Measured scan of single mutants.
Amino acid sequence: SEFQINEQVLASWSDSRFYPAKVTAVNKDGTYTVKFYDGVVQTVKHIHVKA
């Protein structure tokens, strides 16, 4: 599913667990740039983002 900029989502971290994050960019290659609550910004594949 498509997510929008500033949408609150759950994004997987390197430990494969999902954490609350905010979408900061929707990228043309189908990835999302997300910002976790601790301030870390990461680009993740769409399969690693869920509502």
Rank of each mutant, 00 (worst) to 15 (best):
S1W: 12
S1F: 14
S1N: 12
S1H: 14
E2T: 09
E2D: 10
F3L: 06
F3S: 03
F3G: 04
F3H: 05
F3M: 04
F3C: 08
Q4H: 11
Q4L: 10
I5M: 07
I5N: 05
I5H: 05
I5F: 05
N6I: 07
N6R: 02
N6Y: 09
N6Q: 05
E7N: 05
Q8N: 13
Q8Y: 14
Q8C: 15
Q8V: 15
V9G: 02
V9T: 03
V9Q: 01
V9A: 01
L10D: 05
A11Q: 01
A11K: 02
A11W: 00
S12I: 15
S12Q: 15
S12D: 05
S12W: 14
W13Y: 15
S14F: 11
S14Y: 09
S14D: 15
S14T: 12
S14C: 12
S14Q: 13
D15S: 02
D15V: 00
D15N: 06
D15R: 00
S16I: 08
S16M: 07
S16H: 12
R17E: 13
R17Q: 13
R17M: 14
R17L: 14
R17D: 13
F18L: 09
F18D: 04
Y19W: 10
Y19G: 04
Y19L: 13
Y19F: 11
Y19R: 08
P20N: 04
P20F: 10
P20W: 05
A21D: 01
K22F: 12
K22G: 05
K22W: 12
V23H: 00
V23N: 01
V23P: 01
V23L: 03
T24A: 06
A25Y: 05
A25W: 05
A25P: 01
A25F: 06
A25D: 06
V26G: 00
V26H: 05
V26I: 13
V26P: 01
V26W: 04
N27P: 00
N27Q: 02
N27M: 05
K28N: 13
K28Y: 09
D29R: 00
D29G: 02
G30D: 05
T31A: 03
T31P: 07
T31R: 02
Y32Q: 03
Y32G: 02
Y32T: 05
Y32L: 11
Y32A: 06
T33Q: 11
T33I: 09
T33V: 12
T33G: 05
T33H: 02
V34K: 00
V34N: 00
K35C: 10
K35E: 15
K35D: 08
F36P: 00
F36K: 00
F36N: 00
F36E: 02
Y37P: 08
Y37G: 08
D38F: 15
D38Q: 06
D38I: 06
D38S: 10
G39W: 08
G39Q: 03
G39V: 04
G39L: 06
G39M: 05
V40T: 15
V40W: 10
V40M: 13
V40S: 15
Q42V: 15
Q42K: 15
Q42A: 15
Q42R: 15
T43P: 02
T43K: 10
T43D: 09
V44G: 03
V44S: 04
K45T: 13
K45W: 07
K45R: 10
H46F: 10
H46V: 12
I47L: 11
I47W: 10
I47V: 10
I47T: 14
I47Q: 13
H48L: 11
H48Y: 13
H48M: 14
H48N: 14
V49C: 07
K50I: 14
K50C: 10
A51D: 07
A51H: 12
A51M: 09
